[in-house]
């Protein structure tokens, strides 16, 4: 295996083209453990962290651009970003220990395509778009369309994600992310739930986006819960509908962290709590 650290997007694209058996990476917190457990080594590893655009966070013309190789610690710790997207910042802050936080990137979290990836539901509810580079130019794609199943993505050979773009939220709109794990730190989600809720002055929900992680092969939108919220107050009746809709959207696995039934049960509870949390923030 050869290692290269290109200093520009073009240089990285050249390298990708020069060696079909190559792999881009940022924090290597997924890729190295996978190689240790038998994933074949590629001929070329392309380190994206020396490309300036990929390690920057910026907000211009009401659009945030978060470099795909920015370490989670900087996303969780950016106070301006956190005030616009507290849920997204929290989801990044939940990834692993301090050691992992200092390396793990959004690009890696999204492209590793684990169903339990913490930032993915939060990116989805914020309608984040990935900016994807290839020899043919740049294209953008909603984050929801990147993972196609555990470990697989819709990216083509020769492509990589440069950054994620998210529009600043409207007034009276807020996001939240909650994760349930068997311990308080250092574990993988049994269920993750993200919501973005927009409220009007009368206390009715005018718009809602809800996504769940770890309960299906990819993160899932819960559109039935969104429909139940839109135009309605967030009362017992609405919350009961949200719980039922979240449970109906689940198609989870059974594993040591939780059985199918357990994950489905928890998904309902977490969906309800995350909606309440996002709505509380939206009212402020």
């Amino acid at each position: 295996m050869k290692y290269e650290a290109p200093k520009s997007i073009d240089e990285a694209l050249e390298l990708l083209e020069s060696e079909p058996d190559s792999c881009v990476f940022a924090g290597a917190t997924d890729i190295i453990p996978q190689m240790r457990s038998g994933r074949p080594e590629p001929k070329l590893m392309i380190d994206l962290k020396c490309i300036p655009e990929m390690v920057q966070i910026a907000c211009e013309n009401k659009v945030w651009t978060i470099g795909a190789a920015v370490p989670a610690v900087l996303i969780a710790g950016d106070s301006a970003l956190k005030s616009d997207f507290p849920g997204l910042a929290e989801s990044a802050g939940l990834i692993g220990s301090d050691q992992i936080q200092n390396r793990a990137s959004l690009g890696g979290n999204v492209c590793n395509a684990s169903p339990a990836a913490d930032t993915v539901p939060a990116l989805i509810v914020n309608n984040a778009h990935a900016v994807i580079a290839s020899k043919g130019g740049m294209r953008t794609l909603p984050v929801a369309l990147i993972a196609t199943g555990p470990g697989s993505t819709s990216l083509n050979a020769g492509e990589f994600i440069v950054a994620f773009r998210i529009e600043q939220p409207l007034p009276h709109s807020a996001d939240a992310y909650l994760r349930f794990i068997p311990r308080t730190e250092m574990d993988i989600a049994v269920v993750g739930a993200a919501a973005r809720i927009t409220m009007d002055k009368a206390g009715n929900c005018t718009d809602a986006v809800i996504a769940l992680g770890a309960v299906a092969p990819t993160a899932v939108r819960v559109t039935a819960a969104e429909d139940a919220l839109r135009g309605n107050p967030i009362d017992e009746d609405t919350l009961t509908k949200i719980m039922a809709a979240a449970r109906a959207a689940c198609n989870p696995i059974d594993d040591k962290r939780g059985s199918k039934e357990y994950r489905t049960q928890v998904a309902g509870v977490l969906a309800k709590r995350v909606v309440i949390e996002a709505a509380d923030r939206a009212r402020k």
């Binding site: 453990p33 610690v73 050691q99 390396r103």
Partner: peptide, 15 residues
Amino acid sequence: GRLVCSCLVFAPEAE
């Protein structure tokens, strides 16, 4: 200046 697991860093990254 950042705490990392050195088992998850490729040696050439030390340049």
